[in-house]
Structures are given as structure tokens and as C-alpha cells.
Design a protein around this nucleic acid. Sequence first.
DNA 1: TTGACTGCAAATGCTTTGCACCATT
DNA 2: AATGGTGCAAAGCATTTGCAGTCAA
Lengths: 137, 137
Amino acid sequence: MKCVEFLEEACQRAGLKMTTPRRAILKVLGEAKDHPSVEEVYTRANALDSSISMATVYRTLSMLEELDLVIHHSFKDDTNSRYELRHSHHHHIIDMDDHNVVEFDDPRLEKMLKDIMSEQGFDMVCHRIELYGRKKS
Amino acid sequence: MKCVEFLEEACQRAGLKMTTPRRAILKVLGEAKDHPSVEEVYTRANALDSSISMATVYRTLSMLEELDLVIHHSFKDDTNSRYELRHSHHHHIIDMDDHNVVEFDDPRLEKMLKDIMSEQGFDMVCHRIELYGRKKS
DNA sequence: TTGACTGCAAATGCTTTGCACCATT
DNA sequence: AATGGTGCAAAGCATTTGCAGTCAA
């Protein structure tokens, strides 16, 4: 099943109505290969339906975040919120020179984090890992 | 040497003038055992000198961040920026029930992060690790 | 039909800034 | 004396919200 279809189904399962703006925003998110800002989602969605407003983009993104379908990021040195589909679990390496983002996942890291929390008497719910660096020369 | 004295020296070394508002803010930060918001720093600093303005608190905190003397946090589900002295390297476990913050550091974790970045072709500059969870029952 | 959804514009809330005055060096 | 720092109020900007009209179910 395609990404967008999955999203639409998830929304419908949650009892939400499938409107043109929502479909457009879901399509944008489903096709995004980056971590677009609200502004960027707005611009891309407008290419599909020029009547979509910023308010709807904000409302839709919050809603999707609530449903755990997207992840809301706020990286350092970036006043803009960025969003990404929660398709797979991973973390980010931010290139401090060009602000590009590389994704990675590592089971050893996951285990270590869970262990650390356990030692401190907590059950882990989620975590945020951001590594900042520069390309090796 | 006491914390506040170290901060004052660091500021002077950076060529900054030591004014009453700055001294008050440095004292607040030096004595804080938590991660106060700008508003909280403002309130506490005002107890020492009631003429201090928010603008100065913002300006001073940005300045200290610039000098790498404090760390600027923006935790999830919290629209307020929070600040803490950069006295030691550590990360945070955020209690999702009461928003308390537990600090920890772990050399094994540090090494693993450095290794992961290296595998991806990066030299690590810094990182942000936040673990969210609930107390074990 | 009807409650959910939308666009619009106004409001909000955190943060920054221009300016005239003041204090540290 | 000179430069940098300050308070105040206004401006900025991302985000949220009230409202009246609109649309999916």
C-alpha cells in the first residue's frame, strides 16, 4: 500500500473527514523526502490546491502529530518547526555546514538508552537524539 | 572558586562590562538547581534588583549562550525556552508525568554516538539527547 | 441534515529591536 | 570621555483561535 493511502486510512479510522486540503497535505507529506517546515508544506500543498490556508496546514499538522502519524522537530538554530512522517524509527545527524539531515537507526543505541533509563528508575516512552557535526575532511 | 565568580570572570575575559543586571542574572543561574525558563530567570533576578527588564534577561541569556556558558533547551510539550549552566556534560531524562528533569552522563553512550557519526562520515561537534519516560511502577 | 472543517483575519505569546538615557571602564 | 549596557515600548514572527460560511458523511 502506498504511503498516502495508508495515511488517509489512518485518518478515516480516527473518524476524520477526508477533505481536499487534508488530502493535499497528506500527499505532500507522503512524498516528502526531507523534513519540511510548515511554510514548505504550505507552499507544496498550494501547488495542488491553491485555496489551502496556513491555518489549515497548522491544524492538520497538529492533528497528525496528535495521531502519531508525523513527528514534530525543532532543531537547534532553526526557529521553524519541521515535520516528517513517522514511517520508521530513526534519528538525525545534522550537518552544521549546510543544515542537511542524515537519518540513521541503531539497535545498540536503542538498547543502551533503554538501559540507562531503567537504571534511573524509568520506563522509556520516547526519546530525541540529534547529533550535530561536520563532514570529515 | 564559586560558580558565580567563574561566570563573572568568564564574562570579563570576553570583554563584557559587569553591570548590576548581569551580576544578578549570573547569580540566579549560578544558584539554580533546575532549568529555569526566561520568565523564571526574570522573576528570580528581579528579587535581587527590581529594575531588571525582560529585554535584558533575553539579551544576557543569548550572550551567555553565545559564550557557551549556558545551554539553551526547548523540551517537547513546552513552548518556553529553558536555560541551564554548562557546568558539566550531561543529558536529560524528562519525567512525562510531572515534567521533572533528571540529569545523567554515560561515557559508553558518548563513545557510541561518536562512533555512529564516524561511520556516517562526520566529526561530532555536539549532540542533544533527551529521554522521555515515566517512573517505573 | 449536521457536525466537522475551512479560510480569513485578528489575537496571542515568545522574542527581538530601535532609541534615548545611563553606567562601567 | 567613549563605548557598551539598559529600560521601555514597539515591532516581529511563528502559531493559535473566533467566527461565519462550507462541505463530507
